[in-house]
Every structure is written in structure tokens, then in C-alpha cells.
Design a binder for these strands. Sequence first.
DNA 1: ACTATATTGAGATATGTTCTTAGTTAGTAA
DNA 2: TTACTAACTAAGAACATATCTCAATATAGT
Lengths: 153, 153
Amino acid sequence: MPAGTNDIDERLDAFVAACRQHGVKATHQRREIYRELARTVEHPDVQTVYRRVRRRVPSVSLDTVYRTLRLLDDKGIVCRVACQDACARFDAATERHPHFSCVKCGALLDVCSDELNALPVPASATALGTVTSVHVVFQGVCVACRNGRQRGR
Amino acid sequence: MPAGTNDIDERLDAFVAACRQHGVKATHQRREIYRELARTVEHPDVQTVYRRVRRRVPSVSLDTVYRTLRLLDDKGIVCRVACQDACARFDAATERHPHFSCVKCGALLDVCSDELNALPVPASATALGTVTSVHVVFQGVCVACRNGRQRGR
DNA sequence: ACTATATTGAGATATGTTCTTAGTTAGTAA
DNA sequence: TTACTAACTAAGAACATATCTCAATATAGT
């Protein structure tokens, strides 16, 4: 979900509040890591977040980015998006929504579908256990790649 | 999907045919790797397949299991299942079907839901690109873990 | 402002996966 | 059956992702 500057500030305030609520410190690094996630729709992986945060906080360590994203995922403040490649990718939007994953360029895009989001979990799934989250990924070739344009991550 | 012995033989025949069709050799190792995948519903990872295949083919190398599973995934003969942990897991059933993933023990279970399988891809997804596959994963705690029983991979 | 303690940075380490080379085996098509 | 060649094994190296250890530091509550 795109977000204007004001929006980001609001979300950062909410983030700090969420940290307090969970009893974890809202450190400078964590705020910057969250900001990078909240300000993009790309669902960047850890390395990408690291590279970007380093522009603002040159001393930040890769490990801190790993630790922070894992922590925030555990607390439910951000969420990890399942994708086919090896690396974990993250989303600041924790509300359930499907994704589109391009097998060519690796782009991971948000899909808006109230219909799908409202879809109840089938009994055949709840019979297997307690469902806490639902992940829907459409895989294929994105419009940009289909049109021949190549783009990196 | 579970499979009896006869079923396995049939699927192995189909596997050999699929190899021919794709111009790759249906070697002894590849057949045994496929057999291990077809005979279980656990969606094992590479290491697990390797351990099991070695019982029948002691000389098989880990690298061959990696290479074979990647090749078969590329050809669409098996499919890689997205899961939260680092390692790739595989499924001999290539027909679209949802999975249940247990966050505690890592179990990856098949969900049977004709309803979900029949669900059309929403226009908001096809607008982003050409969809070639749909992955639905319900995440949560499986019945066994909920009941306190622990089980390894 | 002070202090207890959660958090960080840096480097080491673990794990999963792929590649390289060279010599050997075994499918496939004729 | 034979020959061509893809595929295999072995062993090592390389690479990427992710986690750990521990001393130094910054944050939150008083």
C-alpha cells in the first residue's frame, strides 16, 4: 500500500506505540527499518532493507536488520511474505491480502481483492489445526516482463 | 495425496513418459527421487529425500538430489512448495491445491478444497501479469502440536 | 540525570545451495 | 548391440542466507 509522508509519520507513531505495547524498545535503528518497509510497496528482502537503512544510519549492521525484522514479524508488527526464492521478504501491511510474484524479475506486488480477503477459511483447513494466517500468492509473469522490459530487483 | 503401491507404479510410468517428453533421461536415481516424493504426503525437503533415497541407492549424491529436484521443478513435473523456513520443500502433486503449514513443528499438509481450487483468479491479479500458478497456504498450529504432542520433521 | 538492561555492531559461525573438475556409468536411439 | 552423450559420483570450493557471541552502547523508567 503506497503511503504519503504524513502517512509515514502516522505509521511511525503507531509503530512506536506498538513497540511500547510489546515491551520492546523503539530504537533509532528499528524506527528506520520500519520506515523503509512502510515507505515502499516492493516487499524488500533483508539485504535491500539493509542497503537502504544504511543511507540514513551508516553504522547499522546487517544482523540488526535480520534481528529486527524477525522480532517485528514475531510480534505481528510486520509480516513475512512467502515467496519462491530463498530469501525472506517483508511487508509493513499486516492485513491479509494476496500477492503477485513475478518468476522473471522477482517483483512481489500487492493484489487488492476484498472478495478474496473475505473468503472464509475452509473447514478442511481448520480440521488440520488452528489457522492464524492465510497466504495467497499468484505466480506468473508481470506486465513489465511480458512487454519485454527487464528490470532488476 | 496418498498413493497405494499400484498408484505409485502408474505414476512412475507417467514420470518416465514425462521425462521422455521433455528430452531428459529417466535415470535410476531420478526415478527413485521421484518415487520418494510420490509415496509421501509430507512434502519433504532435499535433505530428507536424500536420506530416504540413499536407503535404496546408497551411492546417490546430495548434489544429484538437488539437481534433480530443481530440474523436475523447472519442467513442472514436481513442484516446489513455498514455506516459511529456509529450505525448499517439494510435492509430486502438481495440481493446484492449498497447504496447511504448522509454525511449531514445520509440518506441511495438503488441504482438500474443490471450492478453493475452483476459485477463479481475480481480475486485480490478472491485471498485474499472466498468472501461471496459485499458491494458498494456511499457517497456524496443527492438531498434533495443539494437543501438546511434539514431533520432529 | 541515573541506572538497569535491552539492544547493537563486528566478526565468527552455521546451514542451504550451487558450481567445478575429472573420471565413470548408464539411458537412448539407430 | 553398439555408440553417443547425458547424467552421475566425488571432493572441494564458492556463495548466499541466517544466526550466534560478546563487549560496548543507548533506551526507558525512576
